[in-house]
Amino acid sequence: MKIRQIQEILDATCLCGDNFDGDCFAGCGCDLMSDVLAFPKEHMCLLTGLTNPQVIRTSEMLDVMCVVFVRGKRPPEETLELAQELGITVFSTKYTLYEACGKLYAHGLPSKNEV
């Protein structure tokens, strides 16, 4: 699924990055960083309610393609600065974690545990 499509489906605002043609192979929705780190896959989209810079560091470790902050959350400036520096595309959506994951899954983005 193209990052552009993820933005459309989630009616999301882009907070930084412009890799809209990047391709995500799998999604992961969680508020525990160790859950993402447990069984990481290539080209993931990470959806989370956490907004601290560690979310971006964790994403860097796993080459996460794009990060979506749910429930309309706006991350602190340090988080966006790090994402900018690392070239990670970041969105904010008004949907909850459950809704956002459900929408992407229904549109065909598989779970990281399925690919």
């Binding site: 525990l32 960083m33 859950d35 447990a38 956490l50 601290n52 560690q54």
Partner: peptide
């Protein structure tokens, strides 16, 4: 901050 799930050491081993 999203840590403290008690998953780190088992993850490292795996």
């Amino acid at each position: 901050m999203g840590f403290g799930a008690g998953m780190g050491l088992p993850n490292m081993k795996r």
